[in-house]
């Protein structure tokens, strides 16, 4: 096959990848949005759409911005096939991106090339299948453990999943960013101390807290740029 034929074959592959990618993305979206309603039919209780809308305003907007940024940054790295697959299978930052980058580095593929397209798709597909397999096996093994997991003694552990997560993330994000974190943390603590009823609306407090952190980041950013210009 000469270079022109190769290019034509790759263009056809890419075109078809977009078609398949779009179809499976839409199908997965429908399945994921439909699943809570299907489960609602099974459990005899449909989702409270009003509460979902309120929850979306409080926490969903944060994830929307983050989702758009991730899309813009990672799609060029992953190419068409890798991009569609990565956004369907998730765990981007902690797994798919490092996995695809290490595969690409291993073979020396460059972003935007046909080789990169193939390598990143192979890498993300393999990675996703392993995760699916490990989780399926793990869940099978978990079934006999259900009585233990539901025991009274372990309930404090499951009631503290969220504080456990935020403790771990606080170290990760605050480390090296205390200048940004200090003021929002003090202000939020004072607000929750002075108005205890706010505890029931913590997710809404993310908005002023996030705004404060972004404003401080902007000021620091401007200061750094001015200093470097001098």
């Amino acid at each position: 096959m000469n270079e022109q034929d190769k290019q034509a074959a790759f263009d056809r592959y890419n075109e078809r990848t977009h078609t398949i990618g779009r179809v499976v993305s839409v199908t997965t979206l429908i399945l994921l949005i439909g699943a809570p309603f299907a489960l609602g039919a099974i459990l005899g209780a449909m989702p409270d759409v009003g509460a979902v809308a309120k929850g979306f305003v409080s926490v969903g907007l944060v994830w929307m911005v983050s989702g758009v940024a991730e899309y813009l940054i990672y799609t060029p790295m992953l190419g068409a096939g890798g991009g569609y697959l990565a956004f369907i299978t998730g765990n981007l930052i902690n797994m798919k991106i490092p996995c695809a980058i290490s595969a690409r580095d291993m073979v020396g593929a460059k972003t935007g090339t046909a080789e990169n397209e193939v390598i990143s798709t192979l890498s993300i597909a393999a990675s996703s299948l392993v995760t699916i397999l490990v989780l399926a096996l793990g869940v099978l093994l978990l079934v006999p453990l259900q009585p233990i997991l539901q025991s009274e003694v372990l309930q404090p552990a499951f009631a503290n999943v969220v504080p456990a997560l935020f403790g771990a993330m606080a170290y990760k994000y605050f480390r090296g960013s205390m200048k940004i974190a200090a003021i929002p943390l003090v202000v939020m603590s004072l607000l929750f101390i002075l108005i205890p009823s706010l505890t029931g609306s913590t997710s809404f407090m993310i908005i002023p807290s996030g705004a404060m952190a972004i404003a401080i980041t902007w000021l620091l950013y401007r200061y750094e740029r001015k200093s470097s210009d001098k």
Binding site: V62, V65, S66, A69, V162, P163, F166, M169, A170, Y173, F174, S177, I180, A181, P184, L185, V187, M188, S189, L190, L191, F192, L198, T199, T202, S203, M205, I206, S209, G210, A211, M212, A213, I214, I216, T217
Partner: peptide, 15 residues
């Protein structure tokens, strides 16, 4: 983006 997450964590730790 990082700042947004810091704000989010601050809100929960504050609570």
């Amino acid at each position: 983006m990082t700042a947004m997450f810091i704000g989010l964590i601050c809100a929960y730790l504050g609570s």
